[in-house]
Amino acid sequence: IFVSPKQTIPYLGPIYGGLREGVSIYIQGSVPEDITRFFVNLLCGEAESSDIALHFNPRFDGWDKVVFNSCQNGSWESEEKIRSMPFSKGEAFEMVIVVTSQGYQIRVNGNDFHTFEHRMPVERVRAMQIAGDVSIQTINVIGGGYPGGDMGVNNCFLLFTSPVPYSNMIPGGMFPKRTIIIRGMVPYGADRMSINFMVSRSRDIAFHMNPRVREGMVVRNSMIGGNWGQEERELSLNPFMEGQYFDVSPYNKKKKTGNSCMSIRCGNQRFKVFVNGQHLFDFFHRLQSFNEIDVLEIEGDVQISYIHF
């Protein structure tokens, strides 16, 4: 289930299909320089007065900490205070809430932070509330689903700072109108990386996308029958910069400061690549049977946090 960006704060919205073990909530946002506090609540109903299964509350009050709690029948229960702050003033963040059998596992910017053990059945959770000093760009519920939905657990998965080089099968292969979503970050000191769409049977690389950070270009090519084709280098802009997150996604259409937002979409004749809603380049198919593409490989100087097929 994808909640369209950008979210107005305070935010209160349903979690269609509810939560269960294995479901993850991905939140992308930023906090202002003058932040004092914000919170994320998982509610057992769609009203603010509903019981709260998880209360996640970062506080910048001179004794920086994150408070966890729950609330039942209008009464707050015992607080858990983590005297560590995973957020930085004035900076963007990626946060993931993973529902495990033990509790809610919280990860921020790819790092484990804390697991808040279940105090009430996770099946009761029906909505999410976010308020305070925070700006939210994207909310994704991964592994959920609802009648008629097409973003269920069978066609997506989540990775947390996945090791690079990365290689995995593309479930169902590539076909017209299919879009691959990748989120990650270009670390400081990065030189180059590559994103390859491959055929497992022949090891042909149907589409090789090679951002070269220091050169400020994105090279495109293919390797068929063991031979590299002609490089394509013309480009109006380069979305891959040191220390910045990138978002290979068709859902974030608006440009955001400090983030790159891109979609890779397969068509009958070409791969179409957009950045922040603007066309970056087309790469015409050089492999006749592009529907044989069934492997995604990522190599080089990059940190990967999320992939959706």
Results as ranks from 00 to 15, higher is better:
Ile1His: 09
Ile1Gln: 09
Pro14Asp: 13
Ile15Gly: 07
Tyr16Arg: 14
Gly18Asn: 05
Arg20Glu: 12
Val31Asn: 04
Thr36Ile: 04
Gly45Met: 03
Pro58Trp: 06
Gly62Ser: 06
Cys71Asp: 00
Gln72Thr: 15
Ser75Asp: 14
Ser78Leu: 13
Lys81Gly: 00
Ser84Val: 02
Val99Gln: 04
Gln102Thr: 14
Thr115Arg: 05
Glu117Tyr: 13
Arg119Asn: 10
Met120Ile: 01
Val122Gly: 01
Glu123Ile: 07
Met128His: 14
Gln129Glu: 12
Asp133Gly: 11
Ile136Glu: 07
Asn140Thr: 12
Asn155Ile: 10
Phe160Tyr: 07
Thr161Ala: 15
Asn168Ile: 04
Met174Cys: 13
Phe175Asp: 00
Ile182Met: 03
Arg183Asn: 12
Tyr188Gln: 14
Arg192Val: 11
Asn196Arg: 08
Val199Lys: 13
Asp204Tyr: 10
Ala206Thr: 15
Phe207Tyr: 14
Pro211Lys: 05
Val213Lys: 00
Arg214Asp: 07
Arg220Met: 13
Met223Leu: 12
Trp228Leu: 09
Trp228His: 11
Arg233Tyr: 01
Glu234Asp: 11
Phe240Thr: 12
Met241Asp: 09
Glu242Gln: 15
Asn252Ala: 11
Lys253Ile: 12
Gly258Tyr: 07
Ser260Glu: 02
Met262Asp: 04
Arg265His: 00
Arg265Cys: 11
Phe271His: 08
Lys272Ile: 11
Leu280Thr: 04
Asp282Phe: 02
Ser289Pro: 00
Ser289Lys: 09
Asp294Asn: 15
Val295Gly: 00
Gln303Asp: 11
Ile304Thr: 04
Phe309Thr: 14
